[in-house]
Amino acid sequence: MSDKPSDDHSSASEIPDDVWEQFIRDAERDTRGSAPKEPSARARMVTERLRRQEERGESPPGWRTGPVSPETNGRAGRRRTLWAVLGVPVAVAVALVALKPSLLPGDPFGTGESAAAEASPLPAESAAPTAAPGASDPEPPTLDEPFAGSPALRWADGEAGIVLPEAKAVGPVSKDRVEQALKLTRKLLVAANLDPETVRGERPEAALSLLDPKQPGLLDDLNTALRAPSGTHDPVTMFSRFDPDEIRPAGDVIKTRGRMTFEKGSHAGVAVRADYTFVYPVTRADGSTEVTRTIVRRVLDVELADPAHYRVTPGRLTVRKYDEEIGNSTCDVNDGYLHPEFPSRREKGPDPTGPTTDPYDRSRSLDDGHACGTVTRT
């Protein structure tokens, strides 16, 4: 046997100790979880030395990475802590977006209009619509969001929804006369449908003061309806009124949409047609937080006649025709008030005899009949 050491032994003896130490650490890390192997005598020796150095606090720095500064280690710790805190909210946000992609700005998935567009106000109605408004998200109304799930969410608030057309002379009727007729009609719509006193069931004095007392029968009929409402004389045919003992407004906003047109009248004056829909969010007066909506569409034909040729009161309107369609109000109750139905208290009764209609559909003409029907949405 030769006394010359083997090539393997010579190569091993020429490897520095720090290299061997790093090799052992890397090997232990890379082979963790694999089948255990019996370490060599050299490996056991180096391992034992490393263990003793660690016990004395003398472990050498990493071979490839170099020393780890306390600052770097702190940043890593903070990042781990931050992700641990943000993990749950981020997961919730991802779930919400998956259920409703429209929550993301800009509509990245091409699902339709962006959230900003969906909530932006509609321009004023300048012509008769050709179809009903599109479907809305089926969200129930609440006290905080009384118009949720309604096309009226994008309608104007109250008086802002009654936009007058530009006044122009019609035949012998001057532009100023036309403008006066338009403004008086607007005042009548506001007083009869938006005035807080009228809506909460009080006598609509402001609206009555705009009507010509010389018009035969009208004021007498309206006063009779307000004093002793009945099936033949009910003030809700002209005024939007709720019983304050039964109903409270859900907020201060009534949504309004419609248009106004004019032409030469039959009494040397100007005739105005107003076609407007009003949406009233309400809750019960018993303290309930449940919200529902009543939708009232009114078509009103009035004329500002020429007092120089006819026996009329200057500055007062003559009503030629008025018609209404009411969505979500109990039928066959003629006590002078609108009676909204709430989903939780909708009573089972006889099937409605009238047609099923969309109360937001302003493309339809109003029929003379007022059969009790069903609305497709509120």
Rank of each mutant, 00 (worst) to 15 (best):
F109A: 15
P340Y: 07
L96D: 00
L103K: 03
G158R: 13
Y310H: 08
V279G: 01
F342M: 02
P141S: 10
P101Y: 11
E197W: 03
S59Q: 10
D3G: 13
R316T: 00
D137G: 05
L143I: 12
N328H: 03
H309N: 13
T283R: 15
T374P: 02
P140L: 10
F239N: 05
S13M: 03
E341M: 14
W155S: 02
G201L: 09
T111A: 14
V236D: 08
V282D: 01
A41E: 15
P213I: 11
V299C: 09
L317E: 01
A91R: 01
L210S: 06
L226D: 09
M45V: 13
V302Y: 10
F242R: 12
F147I: 00
Y360G: 03
G287W: 06
W20E: 01
T198R: 00
R257M: 12
G349F: 08
T142A: 01
R364P: 01
C331K: 06
T313N: 09
E324K: 07
T81F: 12
I247C: 11
C331W: 02
D335G: 08
T313M: 11
P151I: 03
G315Y: 00
P307R: 04
R297G: 02
V272M: 02
T81G: 10
F109H: 12
W20V: 03
V92C: 11
A167P: 07
I295M: 00
A274H: 09
A127K: 05
L300A: 02
V97H: 01
A268E: 08
E325L: 14
A124N: 07
A308K: 15
A12T: 06
G87W: 04
L222K: 02
G77K: 13
T31H: 14
L103M: 10
A27I: 04
V375Q: 02
A115L: 15
P121E: 05
P123N: 04
T256S: 15
S240V: 14
P146S: 00
S344E: 13
R316P: 00
S59V: 12
D107M: 05
K264A: 12
E303W: 03
R346F: 13
R51G: 12
